[in-house]
Simulated assay, not measured.
Amino acid sequence: MTRSPAATAAAPVLDLTLSGGELTAQLVDVPSVSGDERVLADAVEAALRALPHLTVDRDGDAVVARTNLGRAERIVLAGHLDTVPIADNLPSRVDGDLLYGCGTSDMKAGVAVQLRIAATVADPNRDLTFVFYDCEEVEAPRNGLGRLARNHPDWLAADFAVLMEPSNAQVEGGCQGTMRATVSTGGHRAHSARSWLGDNAIHKAAPILQRLADYTPRLVEIDGLEYHEGLNAVRIEGGVAGNVIPDACAVTVNFRFAPDRDQAEAEAHVREVFAGYDVAVTDSAPGALPGLAHPAAAAFIAATATTPQAKFGWTDVARFSALGVPAVNYGPGDPNLAHTREEHCSLSAVTECEKRIRDWLQG
């Protein structure tokens, strides 16, 4: 297989004595688009292996480092190494307190915090597992954390996990599930000059769109957090040619469901909304309950001095939840800037997150 130049370049030497912001810039300047994380994974592995208080393992382009101090609790700090495709936003640049560049917010600032904690907290009050993984930004079967869960579930065993996804330095509990389905109509093809001889499948999609327009999403409170569901059309396909009455049409809908529903319940709801139509689920992922009642979660919330909020999107906290590990999202980036050309992160937020996590682990 031919690898991109990023994948075949020599790994840079990461300087873990830099400030969190400076280390973020160093990470950002190593391109790591999904599937091409090898150079950055090599650099992360080398930096971690230089720390004598950690044991380091690797699976593909995922790196896992652990303390083994016999503490009463084990905590996971996890983050993905990959980014979406570069959008003319490398190398990084600094403007005042803001660091611009691909992956600054999602989520190399969080990865920098992980590395700084790994380097500077050698005697934590809880055992630590640091997880750096690949292919989070692409289809679920390629996800490196999912691969670790399949191949090495013992590497991820813990009492609590913090996913360093961008959250504006606020704790975001759990995550919503996501499901995509096609709602299809059929008709009869005919020449558009003699349209009365046909049955237009696209026209038949109008009631589907009306049901979506009339849909009232649930607001669900769990552990004091309010999750906002949503059911929306995200794609519509139909038509054969400019002079043909179409005999098929499919509306793709995306259901973002609160974590009190499992995938079977979510599918049943989608089928109920579109009763009378042909519905086919194309992909889905479960949500994750916030787990804020866990003592480690409560301690983390207190240490970060934040008011927890619901996570509306899907994140890999769901994978930890499936493993029986309560997890929250907490990172220095702004999720609204993820994947944008103008993606940036506050340098002071990186410093703040690092300090809060260090205080939690040394208090």
Rank of each mutant, 00 (worst) to 15 (best):
T182H: 13
H339R: 04
I222Y: 07
D97A: 07
S284C: 12
L361R: 02
I301Q: 06
A119T: 02
A288W: 00
R116M: 06
P246V: 00
P166L: 02
A118F: 00
P308T: 00
D223S: 09
A43M: 03
S4P: 05
L69K: 11
E73A: 10
E343M: 04
A298R: 15
N329I: 02
D57V: 13
G291T: 00
P124A: 08
H269V: 02
A161C: 08
N232W: 15
G230W: 08
P124D: 08
D59S: 15
E136T: 01
A305N: 13
D106Q: 08
P259R: 02
T185W: 01
V131I: 05
V253P: 01
G110V: 00
R211T: 15
G96R: 05
P207S: 09
A338M: 09
G363T: 03
A190P: 06
G35P: 04
L54M: 09
G96T: 09
A190L: 04
M164Y: 06
A297L: 04
K108Y: 03
A322N: 10
L289W: 08
A149I: 01
A169N: 12
V28P: 00
A285V: 06
E342D: 15
D97M: 07
L99A: 04
E272F: 12
F274E: 12
R235W: 10
R142E: 11
G186D: 09
P286I: 05
A109M: 05
A302W: 11
P290S: 11
G60K: 06
V220F: 02
Q26L: 09
G96N: 07
N125V: 12
G174D: 00
G21S: 07
D260S: 06
V251M: 03
Q210R: 13
A299K: 04
I86H: 02
Y100I: 00
R261Y: 14
I222H: 04
E267Y: 08
A213M: 14
G173Q: 01
A297S: 08
L323R: 05
A181N: 06
D95W: 00
G331H: 05
